[in-house]
């Protein structure tokens, strides 16, 4: 869904008043661009797939075990997030937890309670690459409403406070912005990227690509699309089944009880992360599993850059 130009303009004050009336959160990307006093989230998935979630309790009572399902704690929330982050929710998380049957019962509740306010981007940062993976700085696909901070006020589409129509000059400004962004945008990755990468699974280039990675989980934990989780029990005679984020970067992620490990070596784990986002997920769902927010690039302690990795392997496969 792209800008219709048919939206309305509200003043910053009015916009803030509306936010304050709702239970609003903003992701750090949005907060760093938009100076609003809202509680911040390191990544939008922390609302939908909290890092720690008790799924059910169990306890030993009066000679028998009991299992007590826990309905997810959830309330209506307004989340301000960048277009790439909204895409992560709609294209990836919804795909896995809603559309892939059966839907995840706690995700369903939290998702229904979530209103996505997509905040458009007026510039690209050094880490941004949304347009390489089919995104756009002004797209609000899947969102409930769209806000764009402009010098003369906040341009709004979808749900939200009333406002006035744009003046012709203001509309012109907006068009200029769209034009500038189009000029600055990076080209999309080749259409066959998922196939190219898949065909390069066994190439030696992965040695070189995977070299610097420390195999920590900073990238995957902060990634808005990484959804892998662990189910880990807590307690003996009473306790909980806890769902918590897990990472394909961790050596024990795929460790069998028999001690066999199909991805025992760091190279295999790096390859898994790249291919899951740029090959496996797209081959299944027809869209990239990466939204180009650049968080992983920024968070990486050693500046391991997934953009370079994809380009390097694709160039080998071509």
């Amino acid at each position: 869904m792209r800008l219709s130009y048919e939206g309305r303009l509200v003043s910053y004050e009015e916009f803030l008043r509306w936010l304050q009336a709702s239970k609003a959160f903003a992701t750090e990307i949005v907060l760093s661009r938009f100076n609003i006093a809202l509680p911040s989230l390191p990544t939008p998935k922390s609302l939908l797939l909290p890092q720690r979630e008790e799924l059910y309790h169990f306890l030993w009572g009066k000679r028998e075990w009991k299992v007590i399902p826990l309905p997810p704690a959830s309330e209506k929330v307004l989340l301000l997030l960048a277009p790439c982050e909204a895409k992560a929710v709609v294209h990836v998380l919804d795909e896995v937890f809603l559309k892939n049957a059966p839907p995840d019962s706690s995700y369903v509740v939290r998702r229904e309670n979530l209103t996505l306010l997509v905040v458009g981007c007026t510039f690209f940062e050094a880490t941004c690459f949304c347009t390489r993976v089919g995104g756009h700085p002004l797209s609000w696909e899947g969102g409930n409403c769209f806000a764009l901070p402009l010098p003369f006020g906040v341009y709004l589409e979808g749900e939200g406070p009333e406002g006035r129509a744009l003046e012709p000059l203001e509309k012109e400004e907006l068009e200029k912005l769209v034009e500038r962004l189009a000029k600055e945008a990076l080209k999309p990755l080749p259409e066959k990227t998922p196939e190219y990468l898949y065909s390069a699974f066994e190439r030696e280039v992965w040695e070189e690509v995977a070299w610097g990675c420390l195999n920590c989980g900073a990238c995957t934990f902060l990634c808005p699309t990484c959804f892998c989780f662990d189910l880990a029990l807590e307690g003996k005679l009473r306790g909980a089944m806890v769902r918590t984020w897990d990472s394909c970067m961790f050596p024990k992620f795929t460790l069998h009880a028999s001690s066999h490990n199909p991805r025992a070596n760091p190279l295999q784990r790096v390859r898994q992360r790249v291919l899951h986002k740029f090959s496996y997920f797209p081959l299944r769902k027809g869209k990239f599993g990466c939204v180009g927010c650049g968080r992983c690039v920024l968070a990486c302690p050693v500046n391991w850059d997934i953009r370079e990795a994809v380009e390097r392997v694709v160039s080998c496969a071509l």
Binding site: N100, Y198, F227, F229, D230, D246, T254, P262, S279, Y280
Partner: peptide
């Protein structure tokens, strides 16, 4: 086939072999 699994529902992300989830 056998792979490490947690959810059994194609969500937890660990039992894939390439684009296929062994559990699903």
């Amino acid at each position: 086939l056998e792979m490490k699994m947690k959810c059994g529902l194609g969500k937890c992300g660990r039992c894939n072999i390439g684009p296929y989830y062994v559990c699903q």
